[in-house]
């Protein structure tokens, strides 16, 4: 007599179980590997790790965060710029960079800098990349937002 409902051929059922077992076993292995490598997969050190000493000193690393408002300081006779990277939650560190900043570099926007953390807590950058967020807005709308804020 035919059973009601969904039934599967035993051979197919066995194959399905093997495939699922292998897949989830591998998925688990990958998950654990990713967990173990978590720190290495992160592209950069956030400001709090730069300040509390978890970021290594004097070797090449990447550091990132928001450029603090009104912190950008350009030297008049060279390409040297200084600014502060902050996480807007209290942790911040000064950055020194000689070179041309990307077009998208703005105070209040994210950046990722490659360089060395010096003993005095200053980050000496050799490359600065601009990070933009996932929000897009027409310029007119931005003007309206500014007007409402002020």
């Amino acid at each position: 007599m035919k059973k009601s409902g969904f039934t599967m051929h035993p051979v197919r059922k066995k194959r399905l179980l093997i495939v699922l077992f292998v897949f989830f076993g591998l998925a688990l292995a990958v998950t654990l590997t990713m967990q173990a490598l978590n720190q290495n997969i992160n592209l950069f050190y956030p400001p709090d790790e730069m300040v509390d000493g978890s970021a290594p000193q004097n070797i090449q690393i990447r550091a990132g965060g928001m450029v603090k408002a009104d912190s950008l300081n350009r030297l008049h006779d060279s390409l040297e710029v200084r600014f502060t990277i902050s996480d807007l939650k209290g942790s911040e560190f000064p950055v020194k960079y000689v070179g041309i900043l990307p077009d998208m570099f703005r105070e209040g926007q994210g950046v990722i800098a490659t360089g060395k953390l010096l003993d005095n807590g200053t980050f000496e950058a050799t490359e600065v990349l601009a990070k933009h967020d996932e929000n897009y807005m027409p310029p007119e709308l931005q003007d309206m937002v500014k007007k409402n804020d002020s």
């Binding site: 978590n38 997969i41 992160n42 592209l43 950069f44 956030p46 990132g64 990722i112 990349l129 990070k131 933009h132 967020d133 996932e134 929000n135 897009y136």
Partner: peptide, 9 residues
């Protein structure tokens, strides 16, 4: 993870 790429819009 911390990435340069932005989140989904």
């Amino acid at each position: 993870w911390l990435t340069l790429h932005q989140s989904s819009s």
